[in-house]
């Protein structure tokens, strides 16, 4: 499969405290890539570096083997931030239509809202949305410019069981449509359900990268949680 995003030797520190140290990873087209790690491991920092919200101290991020540019980020990457709360004074359709006119190519906003199951709530103020509805709306915003890659930072954070299921179904349907998904999570059961490939971020380093079965074989166990903990404690 074609390599879309590759992170090469990326390091980042905040006031002389290292958050990421020599991170290397590759994300291939059409896969669901799970970024795992404990709280504060550096997952969000890594995502922010990919999106150029943060500058790495060392290393670079590549897009199809050339340097990732602002234009590529604007046209090809959709992003659902952690703890995303859309502006409460706007209606869902207003925000989508407003942002649609900033994109070069877009999916029609009503179609997007239908895709995430919010077509009946299109004219409602976002301030009246539940947490789950906000997250689904965030996915609609992600898909507005019909991106090749969708990055989701803790997409199921704060969602109830039904909300989590809806989010997984959405992610799976996006994969079926040929999208590449990068998501971060620290809830292992979720990752195991949908991720094709995982990378474990631990204390600012990638301690494992590969398929879940490979991790299970590496630690001679059938329980993902156990394998993850062994991997974390290895360092």
């Amino acid at each position: 499969m074609e390599e879309l995003i590759s992170v090469r030797n990326v390091s980042k520190s905040f006031s002389s405290r290292f958050v990421l140290k020599g991170i290397n990873l590759e994300v291939r087209k059409g896969e669901i890539f799970g970024l795992l790690g404990l709280n504060g491991a550096g997952k969000t920092t890594l995502i922010k570096i990919i999106l150029k919200f943060l500058r790495p101290d060392k290393g670079m991020v590549m897009w199809k083997n050339s340097l990732l540019t602002d234009v590529v980020i604007r046209d090809k990457i959709g992003y659902l931030p952690e703890n995303f709360f859309p502006p409460s004074q706007l209606k869902a359709i207003e925000l989508l239509e407003g942002l649609a006119s900033t994109c070069t190519s877009t999916l029609p906003p009503p179609q997007l809202l239908k895709m995430v199951g919010l077509e009946k709530e299109a004219g409602r103020y976002l301030g009246f949305y539940s947490r789950g509805m906000m997250q689904r709306f965030g996915v609609a915003l992600c898909l507005l410019k019909d991106p090749e890659v969708v990055i989701m930072d803790e997409p199921t954070l704060g969602l109830d069981i039904r909300g989590q299921r809806q989010m997984f179904d959405l992610m799976t349907s996006l994969k079926d449509k040929g999208k590449t998904i990068i998501f971060s999570s620290h809830i292992l059961s979720q990752v195991q359900t949908i991720a094709d490939v995982i990378s474990i971020v631990n204390r600012g380093r990638i301690s494992f990268g590969g398929r879940i079965e490979e991790l299970l074989n590496l630690h001679s166990t059938k329980v993902f949680e156990e394998a993850f903990l062994k991997e974390i404690e290895k360092q």
Binding site: L51, F53, R74, F84, P87
Partner: peptide, 8 residues
């Protein structure tokens, strides 16, 4: 994080 969305 609405800012992140707008900046993208």
């Amino acid at each position: 994080h609405t800012l992140d969305i707008y900046l993208l």
